[in-house]
């Protein structure tokens, strides 16, 4: 009974939560009207949009803010942060929600992948820990390594290596960040 109610609640929640960007993505290749913050409007066909709501329109009619001059443009790129609102046709809503329902079914597979990645990441952290601790501290570090590799006493192993792990993580992250900056 309870389970059914929860499932029902989740289902209705998904049904009503039409995310703006999802709608926009679904509205690709349809006619829409975009008003910018400065009052200019663009009537055109959406070619593409991204998660910043940047829009790529084609066959656009641009209307000035006073509504007196009109420009025909073959295409136009509008920056998302300057959009005030977008008008889409009414039938988009039903069309997109139907598409979303279809896409919802294969979701469990994605969760599985996510877990896999998580363990992989931990494995990496383990390597880093071993190296750093080994160099840095004599006795404690050795213990840490043994426990870490053998995995005999799970509780002790974690407890002992707790400090070492903290150090190693700190180093590992800082070096990664450093690299990141370098490439950027």
């Amino acid at each position: 009974m309870l389970l059914n109610d929860v499932q029902l609640a989740r289902f209705t929640h998904l049904k009503h939560n039409m995310l703006p960007l999802t709608l926009l993505k679904g509205a690709q290749t349809t006619q829409m009207m975009v008003e910018l913050k400065n009052g200019e409007t663009f009537n055109g066909t959406l070619v593409n949009c991204d998660s910043w709501m940047n829009l790529n329109l084609k066959d656009v009619v641009c209307t000035s803010r006073d509504g007196t001059s009109f420009y025909q443009m073959p295409e136009c790129y509008v920056r998302g942060n300057l959009v005030k609102y977008i008008r889409v046709s009414d039938d988009i809503l039903t069309q997109v929600s139907e598409e979303a329902k279809k896409e919802r079914t294969p979701k469990p597979a994605r969760g599985g992948r996510g877990r896999g990645r998580g363990t992989f990441g931990r494995g990496n952290a383990g390597f880093g820990r071993g190296n750093d601790a080994g160099r840095g501290r004599g006795e404690n570090a050795n213990r840490g390594q043994q426990n870490g590799r053998g995995r005999g006493d799970s509780t002790r192993g974690r407890g002992d290596s707790g400090r070492g792990r903290g150090d190693a993580r700190g180093r590992g992250q800082s070096s990664q960040r450093g690299r990141g900056r370098g490439t950027n």
């Binding site: 910018l36 400065n38 663009f42 009537n43 656009v60 009619v61 641009c62 209307t63 509504g67 001059s69 009109f70 420009y71 025909q72 443009m73 073959p74 295409e75 136009c76 790129y77 509008v78 920056r79 300057l82």
Partner: peptide, 27 residues
């Protein structure tokens, strides 16, 4: 890029007469 509002090619961009005369009131 952050201060760009919109951009469009000049080729094919020209001023036209009001194409929305029919739905002016709605606008």
């Amino acid at each position: 890029g952050t201060s760009i509002m919109y951009l469009c090619p000049v080729d094919g961009t020209y001023e036209i007469n009001n194409p929305f005369i029919g739905d002016e009131e709605e606008e």
